[in-house]
Amino acid sequence: MSNTLNLTLQIWRQEATDAPGSFQSYTVRDVPDDASFLEMLDTLNETLIDGGSVPIEFPHDCREGICGTCGVMVNGRAHGQEKGTAVCQLHMRKFNDGDTIIIEPWRATAFPVLRDLVVDRSALDDIVAAGGFVSVPTGNAPDANEIPIPKDVAESAMDAASCIGCGACVAACPNSAAQLFTAAKLWHLNSLPQGQPERYRRSEAMVDTMEQFFGSCTNHGECYEACPKEISLDFIAYMNRDYVKSKLVNRKLASQR
């Protein structure tokens, strides 16, 4: 049988991007410890509506840790304290009765707050649009087994491709860098045979686009600590290597035209 918790919540409220924001204090009572963190917020919202107050906007959709929509700072940590867990998968049994929980949106210049806990992460899409793909128009593909791929290579690509695009890495980074996100996408494609023809074009385009929006990486590793998919920091090293090489290779390719 589940226990219940009484909690104090300090939640960031902000009406619009250019409006000032502030923390508001709320108490929630009798939260079952089987509830998820977001269900706890649902309950608070129901209470707010009952009392005639405008509910809190927070991002969420799948509630299974896969869509990457959710994401808030819980007591200063992106997605909360449980490692490798998106906040939608965080459950209240990880908290104690009487706790105060501080809940804020992702904080990064590239992620403006839209309202309350909801931010705009579309800069991440711009990085993908710059080169995070293999150019293979529909109908042009060879048989799928024509190019064998060693199992380990496929597994490593899959490790990188598991990124859910939540932006916690950016939120956790003291410099608001998007290295982990970008590196994950780059390594996913750069490590596969299918990704080779565009490898250096992609590396240069994605990194340059990333740098337009996000800060620089100074190797703190906070991104990895926050990442719900535990994307490896190694990918950042691979990205840096490919990026450096891309400057040379791309120049050389251009001169061969």
């Binding site: 109908g139 593909a141 060693p150 597994e155 596969l192």
Partner: peptide
């Protein structure tokens, strides 16, 4: 059958056997 070809060419990391085939 065309879907699997298309998705593989796009870099979808489908599970593979040790021989490298899907």
């Amino acid at each position: 059958v065309d879907i699997i070809d298309q998705m593989t060419a796009q870099g979808v990391p489908f599970a593979r056997e040790y021989g490298g085939l899907l």
